[in-house]
């Protein structure tokens, strides 16, 4: 086992544990309802999910049709299946399947 790798992994892993675990102890539900900080923290979920979607899709956006079309069709499939079935699982699978099929069809 490479000791440098182990040292980096342990430091990064310990920080990840602290970042994920310790903030769950912060009882922010005791904040003043409707206050500025309360509104700021309430927006974490939608802000984080929107950010992560954009960050995940950004590298696949390109001007070439062969790269853009699968992304557009996959995105449309996710939206269509979610709106009709209200299922995160089915929408995710449909998006990946549609994306893969377009890549296959474009050769």
């Amino acid at each position: 086992m490479n000791l440098e790798l182990l040292a980096v992994a342990v430091m990064a892993g310990a920080a990840n544990w602290a970042f994920r675990v310790l903030p769950t102890r912060a009882r922010t539900d005791r904040l003043q309802p409707g206050g500025l900080l309360e509104r700021f923290l309430s927006a974490t979920g939608p802000a984080a999910i929107a950010t992560l979607f954009v960050a995940a899709i950004l590298p696949s956006l390109a001007v070439e049709v062969s790269r853009l079309l699968p992304v557009l069709v996959g995105t449309a499939a996710v939206i269509a299946v979610y709106l009709s079935r209200r299922s995160v699982v089915l929408a995710t699978l449909a998006g990946a399947l549609a994306h893969g099929l377009v890549v296959w069809a474009l050769g």
Binding site: A50, V78, I79
Partner: peptide, 10 residues
């Protein structure tokens, strides 16, 4: 990306 989009819609 598909999972994040579905979660966003939800």
């Amino acid at each position: 990306p598909a999972l994040f989009l579905a979660l966003l819609l939800s």
